[in-house]
Amino acid sequence: MRFSRCGANRACNKLTSDGLPEKLERDKSTDRRCSKMRACILVLWIFLMFPAASPAQGRKPTTIAELVTYSAKDREQVLYNGAKTEGKVTWYTSLAGESYKGMVKAFETKYAGVKVEAYRVSGSDMTTRMYEESKAKRYIADTVETTEGNLMFMRDAFLLRPYHSPQFASYPEDAKEKSERGLYFWAIARESYIGFAYNKKLLSKNAVAKNYEGLLHPELKGRMGVSVSDPSYKVVGAMLKTKGQEFVKKLKVQEIALHTIIPPALLDLIASGEVLASPAIFRNHTLNAIAKGAPVDWVPMDIVPTNVGGAAIAVQPPHPHAALLLADYLLGPEGQAVLEKFDYGSATKNLGFKRWRPDHGIVTDKYEKELEVWEKLLKEISRKGG
């Protein structure tokens, strides 16, 4: 809503046709009307611009606009009390396997009386669902956890609301997506690292690649594989970034097999010895396989392509207290401990290798085009596998 200064002052100031002020006798009632009008406009402007000012006067925040900026010491208790009244939180997540179930159990144990309704789906399907729900004005999601690329789509489509969390202080600035007024759209709740996995019984120690140059070792010729998937494309992108296109094309002599399977299935082939190694396997998948007795190991390369999942708030969460309570939990020490049990990495820790987030800091259209380039180059340097 806009207000015109001219409209507010029309009764107070009258101009002649050449723009000079005309001397008029103003009576006291006109002056009072002008003063009241200005005062009303000022009060209304403050109310519209700073809706969160009211709780500072003693009332606890209740609306999502107030809650996202609330930072008092009793924040957790305020959110929990409100969440118990709301009864539940709807969580849209891309966490795989048992990890999201473990998170639900831990959260519900700590915050009794708040039920988590988890909807587990891929990031792209989640984005489509939230977009359609927004168009229909059917707001269902409260808290969102998915990959950074999809969060960028959601942000650009106005599906997310920036917020404050006391947990943000533990995260480096590049692990948060900044908004205005000190708020953030999301922070990185979990990381997955892509590197070189191999069969430690069948590959000699000297042939284990410790960097991208190591992929040219003669013992690896005809024995490596990659999957038709984003992790493989990102590895090509990482090699382009660090070594250049000429190096990537050299890898054609290694006869890398291109398999139409997902990365965990490719890791199974490495464990069985059918494939000796791959430069495009997730660290957490490898650690999980090791825990089950598989003879595999994992090492980082020059830079480590990193998939991340961020914790965000939907633009109009039906359960605002519970939405923020769950986001705080995901980013806090207890939520991070749950994710670490499932071998996810944390943006708050230094693991001794250089992370690289291919989709960070660039517009989504450009990132999609880069993925297409990396995919095409991968197909050029590989041979058809299983």
Rank of each mutant, 00 (worst) to 15 (best):
Q57F: 15
I188W: 10
T69E: 14
G97S: 13
K178F: 04
V68C: 03
I64S: 09
E180N: 08
K88L: 00
V121H: 15
E98C: 00
Y70H: 08
K88N: 01
M49F: 10
F153N: 13
E108C: 02
R161H: 12
T93D: 01
G149Y: 12
E66V: 02
T127W: 12
E86L: 01
L48W: 11
V68G: 02
Y92P: 01
N81M: 03
A56T: 00
K60G: 01
E145T: 15
V68A: 01
F107R: 08
K178S: 13
T147E: 12
M130Y: 07
L79M: 04
E132Y: 14
W45A: 12
P166S: 14
V116Q: 04
Y70T: 04
L42E: 13
A53H: 11
V78C: 00
S54R: 11
G182H: 09
V43L: 13
M152C: 07
K176N: 02
A53E: 04
M49T: 10
R75M: 01
A52Q: 15
L48G: 08
W91C: 06
V68N: 04
H164P: 02
E76T: 07
F50T: 13
K137A: 10
K115G: 01
A72G: 12
I46T: 11
V121D: 11
K105S: 11
G82A: 03
V116A: 05
V116Y: 04
K110T: 09
A65R: 15
S179G: 13
S134G: 14
V68L: 01
D174F: 05
H164Y: 15
E132L: 15
A112T: 15
G149L: 07
V144C: 01
E148G: 13
T93Q: 08
E180C: 00
G97L: 03
L160V: 14
T143N: 06
T143R: 08
A83Q: 05
L42W: 13
M126H: 06
T69K: 14
I46G: 04
G82P: 07
V89N: 02
A189E: 11
S179P: 02
V78A: 01
K88M: 00
M126P: 01
S122C: 05
P61C: 00
G182P: 06
L183Y: 07
M152A: 14
E108T: 03
V121I: 14
S179D: 12
V144Y: 03
A106E: 14
L42V: 12
E86D: 07
S124Q: 14
R138L: 05
A175S: 14
T62P: 02
A136V: 02
R75E: 00
Y171S: 05
T93G: 03
L42P: 00
S71T: 09
E133N: 15
I64N: 05
E132W: 11
A187E: 03
L183H: 07
Y92G: 03
Y139D: 04
E133A: 05
K135M: 09
Y80H: 13
A136G: 02
V78T: 12
D142H: 06
S134E: 08
F47G: 08
S54D: 03
E177I: 06
Y92N: 05
V89Q: 02
A112C: 07
M103P: 05
T85I: 11
S94K: 06
Q167H: 11
S122V: 03
R161L: 13
A106R: 12
G82K: 08
T128N: 13
F107M: 06
S124E: 15
S124K: 07
M103G: 06
I46M: 09
M152W: 13
